[in-house]
Nucleic acid binder design. Structure first.
Length: 491
RNA sequence: GGCCCCGUCGUCCAGCCGGCCUAGGACGCUGGCCUUUCAAGCCAGAAACGCGGGUUCGAAUCCCGUCGGGGCCA
């Protein structure tokens, strides 16, 4: 693409909040691109906004990417030849670059007040000109005058001086994009407090770090000509740009907090698997094969190309993510599932399981696995095995009908005589019960399910019974009978 | 308001250097089968080329216009 340079891409989150799924998707595409081309994937921390930045958000970024399996070759925590990869450690560098631009005549100190600038913008608006049309170098902004005023204690921002030239570039996903000179104002690169703006810091870093491809959200598309102008002024090599379609909420707006969970953390903690999130994200704006939506990292790497990325925005659909999570839940190795089950159950119960409990859970785990969509579904599904049950009212009323007591009583008798407490023997006893009482499975067995689990929704009955100690199962059936009798007496 | 981007089922993705498209797959939805509940699975179904012109024997695919949506700046 850009000569024979080794691909170097970056993702540059701002640590002002939890890692956003939009950033995750951008990171995924950058990572796939880097891996596809044997390149370098870099995580840079764009923390120029020191007031709003917090180290715990950096930790969130780092742990989030690790969780997803997006490993990086340079950047925060892993280091590399470019220092800490945190912009807050490079303010001197940005000021130095700004000074150089001033010396070159490509930037200037601007002492005008906010009010004055607003007037210029208002004027442009009235005249239906681009908003920054009149934001140009004013008279008396020469270096000598500026130095004098600065020395007198006046405040000034530093603006990049637009050379008055249209800027066009070839975007890998969008094709030719062009901005007229009038559309690009003399944008600020250094605030009056000396801190760099995004445009400056990001561009300087991209140059200094040798970034070859910038793949980022479409929201930055209109900033790109500014970055190109800075890059050219500094004699840097222009990276290849790829502006990724934005992620939308169901209302067709840029995905944001008001749409609910937009942080990766929420999904991590909400019971989603990293491979499902990885896979689902890969389906937003890209596809490996329309007939095969379930794919892993190696397949994705082998097929990925930024040029194949969709131009139009994608709506983030939690339903489909949930379905995909279920796909991965069912396909995972039993051993891994059992480990997840133990963790989920312990979390749900708020205590550790002992050896016997673990083996009982392991016995039922494959049947729970078939039914669980989220890892957080497991605890509630297995709760009846380890703690007292509470009856779901609706379930109770639904199944505890006319024949229920008879079925429970008969089941209790038959189950008392089961020798070896296993699913096969339990099934035989309960089938005999059905025959003896002339009941169908629905009428005969649903009451037992509610009696032992509290709910009419549970893993299969025989295995659920098996996973319970026999005496506990019998006691629960007895308790249900007693409750029915109590209700009959009261009614 | 200015500039820029986008426009195939409700949603995601395929098709887009024209005919194989009576537009394909997936999620969701509806109905059915299976079935001890719930899932899963299987089968079936509803569901889209924003609109208008043009080019062409033929357009989702090319061109123009229009409408709509979004992003950025304010």
């Amino acid at each position: 693409m850009s000569g024979d340079r080794r691909v170097r891409v970056r993702i540059a989150p701002s640590p002002t909040g939890y890692l956003h799924v939009g950033n995750v998707r951008a990171a995924l595409f950058n990572w796939l691109f880097a891996r596809r081309h044997g390149g370098v994937f870099i995580i840079r921390i764009d923390d120029t906004d020191r007031a709003r930045s917090d180290d715990r958000y950096i930790e969130d970024v780092v742990s989030g990417f690790r969780w997803l399996g997006l490993d990086w070759d340079e950047g925060v925590e892993v280091g590399g030849p470019h220092g800490t990869y945190r912009q807050s450690d490079r303010f001197d560098r940005y000021r130095e670059v700004a000074d150089r631009l001033i010396d070159m005549g490509r930037a200037y100190h601007d002492f005008r007040s906010t009010e004055e600038m607003e007037e210029l913008r208002a004027r442009a608006r009235v005249e239906k000109k681009p908003p920054g049309y009149y934001v140009r170098r004013p008279p008396g902004s020469d270096p000598d005058t500026a130095r004098r005023r600065l020395g007198a204690g006046e405040q000034a921002v530093v603006r990049f001086s637009n050379p008055g030239r249209a800027v066009g570039f070839t975007d890998v996903v969008r094709g030719e994009v062009r901005f007229e000179a009038d559309a690009i104002d003399d944008f600020v690169i250094l605030r009056s407090d000396g801190s760099p703006t995004y445009h400056l810091a990001s561009t300087v870093d991209d140059i200094d770090y040798g970034i070859t491809h910038v793949a980022r959200g479409e929201d930055l598309l209109s900033s790109t000509p500014k970055h190109i102008l800075i890059t050219e002024a500094l004699g840097g090599e222009r990276p290849v740009y790829a502006h990724l379609p934005l992620l939308f909420g169901p209302d067709g707006r840029k995905l944001s907090k008001r749409h609910g969970d937009t942080s990766l953390r929420a999904y991590r903690e909400g019971g989603y698997l990293p491979e499902a999130v990885f896979n689902y994200m890969g389906l937003l704006g890209w596809s490996l094969d329309p007939d095969n939506e379930v794919f892993g990292r190696e397949e994705a790497i082998a097929a990925f190309d930024l040029a194949d990325v969709q131009k139009s925005p994608a709506v983030f659909d939690p339903d489909k993510l949930g379905w995909m999570n279920g796909v991965y839940m069912r396909s995972m190795a039993t051993g891994r599932f059992t480990d997840l089950a133990v963790a989920s159950v312990e979390e749900d119960l708020g205590r550790d399981l002992d050896g016997d409990e673990r083996s009982r859970l392991a016995g039922l785990a494959p049947l729970i696995q078939e039914r669980a969509k989220l890892t957080t579904d497991i605890g509630p599904a297995a709760r009846f095995l380890f703690s007292d049950i509470t009856y779901d009212d609706k379930a109770w009323r639904k199944v505890m009908k006319a024949d229920a007591r008879r079925a429970l009583a008969a089941a209790r008798r038959m189950l008392e005589n089961v020798g070896d407490w296993n699913a096969a023997n339990i099934e035989k006893a309960l089938r005999d019960m059905l025959a003896a009482e002339s009941l169908n499975p629905r009428k005969g067995w649903q009451p037992i399910r509610v009696a032992i689990t509290g709910s009419n929704i549970s893993p299969p009955l025989f295995e659920s019974l098996e996973a319970l100690p026999g005496e506990v199962a019998l006691a629960r059936i007895a308790a249900a009978i007693a409750r029915l009798d109590l209700q009959a007496g009261a009614g």
